[in-house]
């Protein structure tokens, strides 16, 4: 690691001020940032550690689940309230990394990092979540811009994420057998107003919605309804783990499994 100045501010206002510095980086759980710094792929001048701010906790009220940005994956996975309201989201959190990583990594950090193979972005997009920062509220559509790229401005800090409670939902993840990251992950959410389907791990521009599946499932919420719908391999990733055609195939398989498992 290259040297840096470490800060653990006690208030959001101080954190915002410190994070505005030119080469500053915000650290939540640090489960991605620290390995990146150790490989010298990142060399921030200042680390602004958010662990002194609180910003954690889960509340369920009037059809919405609010999760503080610093809530650990293990606490999302283990929340009895969330397991009742949106079981798919709790299950997704329990599939991230391993138990030790889940004790430290946070939902805000994962969403802000926007790794194209991360799990949470698919839940945010499929559930139509609202990302709340110190200055504004954004829809997931507006928030996720591309690979590791979000609408966050320098010094802007996510404080919480608000998820509408669906009628039913499910997340299916096809893991890379070695890294356990999603080669393809599909989150399906059924609302009274229609069905939303978001895909992670596959898109060359990051997480995206599968509109053809959504239209068919909104009419008929069954695996059969999307059986004949082809997912194009254009703009999907090809790498040593899976080529675009295989990922396209997996999107259909994972989506059908998610529909069948939705509750």
């Amino acid at each position: 690691m290259y040297p840096f100045n470490y800060h653990r501010p006690g208030t959001l206002a101080d954190a915002v001020k410190l994070a505005g510095a030119d080469e500053a980086k915000i650290m939540a759980g640090g489960m991605t940032l620290l390995p990146t710094m150790k490989q010298r792929l990142a060399a921030p001048s200042d680390i602004v550690d958010l662990n002194g701010l609180g910003l954690s906790g889960i509340t369920v009220a009037s059809g919405k689940v609010t999760i503080g940005a610093m809530t650990r994956h293990a606490d999302v996975a283990g929340s009895a309230e969330l397991q009742k309201a949106i079981p798919a989201l709790a299950e997704l959190a329990g599939m991230i990394g391993d138990p030790m990583v889940r004790h430290r990594g946070t939902i805000g950090g994962s969403v802000a990092n926007d790794d194209p193979a991360a799990d949470y972005p698919s839940a945010c997009l499929a559930l139509g979540a609202t990302i709340v920062t110190n200055t504004r509220e954004m829809s997931a559509e507006d928030f996720f811009v591309g690979l590791f790229e979000t609408a966050l401005q320098p010094g802007e800090i996510i404080t919480k994420i608000i998820f509408p409670v669906p009628e039913k939902a499910n997340y299916q993840k096809f893991r890379n057998p070695a890294s356990r990251y999603a080669i393809v992950g599909v989150f399906v959410a059924k609302f009274a107003s229609g069905v939303r389907v978001a895909v992670t791990g596959a898109g060359s521009g990051g997480v995206f919605r599968q509109n053809d599946f959504e239209a068919a499932l909104s009419k008929d919420f069954s695996a059969k309804a999307i059986e004949g719908i082809a997912q194009s391999a254009d703009s999907l990733n090809s790498d040593i783990h899976a080529d675009a055609a295989y990922r396209a195939h997996l999107i259909g398989v994972m989506a059908r499994r998610a529909v069948e498992a939705a509750r």
């Binding site: 640090g30 550690d49 293990a74 030790m100 004790h103």
Partner: peptide, 24 residues
């Protein structure tokens, strides 16, 4: 952060001590 040989308990929870700053 993969092998888990560095696992210790921090405030009672297992974490990977190779991916935590002591100061944090």
């Amino acid at each position: 952060t993969q092998c888990g040989c560095c696992t210790v308990h921090v405030n009672g929870e297992a974490m990977k001590s190779c991916t935590l700053l002591a100061v944090a």
